[in-house]
Simulated assay, not measured.
Amino acid sequence: MKSWWPRGRKAAGEAAAPDTTPAPAGPAHHAEHVMRRLEWKVIRRLDGLLQGDYRTLLRGTGLDLADLREYQLHDDVRHIDWNVTARMQSPYVRVFTEDREMSAWFLVDLSPSVDFGSGELRKRNVSAEFVAVLARMLTRHGNRVGAMLYGSGVDTVIPTRNGRRHVLHLLHSMLDRTATGESGPTRLHELLASAASMIKRRSTIFVVSDFISEPGWEKPLAQLAQRHEVVAVRVLDPLELDLPDLGLLTLRDSETGEQVVVDTHDATFRKRFARIAAQREAELRQALVKSSVDALELSTDADLVDAIVRFVDMRKRRSQLSSGGLPAHLRARAA
């Protein structure tokens, strides 16, 4: 799948900096500046909105017995303690709490196609901010995070650790990357295969990408989801879905350098572009469903806080459904 963007127009490729406040000189200081801005403007808002729902971001590797109580209609019969039931002459179920000892990995696609953005932010900025916010939220609650970064290949592996300094190192690694020019098409399956061979312990894995890649990533993604809990974080820009009337444009493939001149004033061309984009969207979503992974979309023109809150709400509902927390007729309707 090629990634085209217009040349010579700010609205279609020359994205402005995400923050107008001047940052101190140096990449490390820049990461600190971005981290402080995110802590003040994003994480503080999330603290007020999530209200203790951080536990839904990760699921532990095991369960600890927390309590015994009488069976209720919505309970999972597999949790009935038959020994206690026999003694009490009434059904009792075991109540578990999840082990919080869990690691999270971010598989981040930083190939040339993510340098596109039609507004103030590029997809690369959105990816970096999402990873920084989620990593900081998780490490503040005792979890460990690591990352694998993909440029023209898997070129950086950051082992799992916790703490703010580690998150800064992760953010710095994402921001302090010089453009390599045309590097050929993205091979997302290489990133997924590398993760499968390297991450041995069960973890929560966030695949952060625009999914503009050579085909063949679907099977490795599904295989990764068989062992780990995988979340596909798809980063996109509105211009990739609907091309406005901008007249004659020169479009350049960001990964191969191939160029083509198109007339966006032609309504037929714009409709064909929208139809192809819609078809690709449907195929992508179908592939993610078949891979049995949760999916989250981040747009360059959308609010990051709203996206994360939606994601947490989705996981909370999924947890309720899987544990039998809703009546059968409502579970069937929600599914």
Rank of each mutant, 00 (worst) to 15 (best):
M102R: 15
R87F: 02
A334S: 11
L50S: 06
P22F: 07
R94D: 02
G325W: 02
H329L: 12
M148T: 02
A11S: 15
D294V: 03
T85V: 04
V309C: 05
G216Q: 07
N83H: 13
V95Q: 13
H30W: 08
P215T: 07
E283S: 09
H329N: 15
P327M: 04
R122I: 01
L68Y: 15
A66F: 06
A278V: 01
A307E: 05
R165D: 12
D176Q: 11
A128D: 05
H172Y: 04
H74A: 10
R280W: 06
G117V: 01
T156K: 13
D76T: 07
R122Y: 03
L288I: 09
D313I: 01
T56I: 01
S254V: 04
G26I: 03
L192G: 07
S319L: 08
T186K: 11
V208C: 12
I158Y: 06
E283D: 13
T268L: 09
M102D: 01
L246A: 13
V131N: 07
M35E: 07
A282W: 06
E14V: 11
V231C: 03
S292Y: 08
M137W: 00
F130G: 00
D313T: 06
V289Y: 11
V309K: 05
L246P: 02
A196S: 14
E281T: 09
M314H: 14
R275I: 00
K10Y: 08
G146W: 09
A328P: 04
R317T: 14
R280C: 03
V95A: 10
P220E: 10
F130K: 00
M137A: 06
E229P: 02
A147C: 08
F116Y: 14
P215W: 06
G52T: 07
L46C: 02
A328N: 05
G247P: 08
H74M: 11
R122F: 02
L298E: 00
A15M: 08
H33Q: 04
P238G: 10
N143Y: 00
I212R: 14
H141S: 08
V108P: 08
Q223A: 14
D306G: 03
V233C: 08
T268P: 01
V34T: 10
L326C: 04
S111I: 04
D242W: 05
H329D: 15
P185D: 05
A16F: 06
L304S: 01
A274S: 14
V42S: 02
V262T: 11
A278L: 11
D253G: 01
V167D: 07
T160Y: 00
L121Y: 12
R144W: 06
V208R: 11
A334D: 12
R275Y: 07
L110C: 12
I212V: 14
L298S: 02
S90I: 01
